[in-house]
Design a protein around this nucleic acid. Sequence first.
DNA 1: CTCCTTGCAAAACTTTTGCAGGACC
DNA 2: GGTCCTGCAAAAGTTTTGCAAGGAG
Lengths: 155, 155
Amino acid sequence: MRNMKKSTIMNTLKKKIREHKYKFTTQRQIILQAFLDSKENHMSAEDVYEMVRDENPDIGLATVYRSLELFTHLELLKKLDFGDGRSRYELNDHNLSHSHHHLICLGCGKVTEFSYDFLNEVKEKIKKENGFDIVDYQLKFYGYCRDCAKKNQNL
Amino acid sequence: MRNMKKSTIMNTLKKKIREHKYKFTTQRQIILQAFLDSKENHMSAEDVYEMVRDENPDIGLATVYRSLELFTHLELLKKLDFGDGRSRYELNDHNLSHSHHHLICLGCGKVTEFSYDFLNEVKEKIKKENGFDIVDYQLKFYGYCRDCAKKNQNL
DNA sequence: CTCCTTGCAAAACTTTTGCAGGACC
DNA sequence: GGTCCTGCAAAAGTTTTGCAAGGAG
């Protein structure tokens, strides 16, 4: 998905919203556009609100929250938690078996992405042992990034 | 750790608190005891507060929050997030390579625990590729438990 | 005795909600 | 035109903080 043209992605998102009988409003489009344009991959509601105000200063924070909730429900976004007291969101690339995970630095708080496929082998095991059907999963690693590991050595 | 006598565990926790030059106050002991006694493995601050008031009605909610933060910092507890808007805590059994993960049911919200070791193989890879030193990790699976999967079929 | 810790109350934040007006299809 | 959606403001809920009094070592 990251390789596609932004306008193509927007059309896909638009289609998904309409398929579910929701309206593709200006506000919803602007919010989705923010995710396509942002360099920050993990935006909080407040981050989105600020980006979106540049485009349309009249938009309300409640609308941002309502849209993020809707988009998460429609699986256009994934809701993440990095333990900093607010929820964060990223575009959902619908690639379950090749999804990425997050390396969260305990020193500087930086979040890096990391690819590693392991779901399929575990999925079967969990189904058999627990009778639990996995739809999605989240894997977070906590530790120290290169820079912070270096700083720790100097203490 | 789950197999040890509670009093032995409490002594270990006490020792750890004192090692770090913090005081082992009555309130801190009562809060830790709540974790040892609770049948609920994943307590929110409010859950802890309610358990603890039975023992000492004068304890303040702020004290609970401050203690949970301290214990997490000392790695006596692990802070978890199941996406229900409040943080939850569990005893940290310091068994990184045999740690457990959580199966969160999207139907009924029930959280089940699940053991699966896979850290060691990934740890090296991440160190080499990203220069990132892993200290801890959290793995959550979202899906449908046996009961809810059955209900879904009947729709 | 000296700090660290606590309780209380207030504050700070994030997120949710009610409602009247507006926009989409 | 009917219904869904938005903005505003207020509310709700969780977590944090300031401060004076109290307790542990």
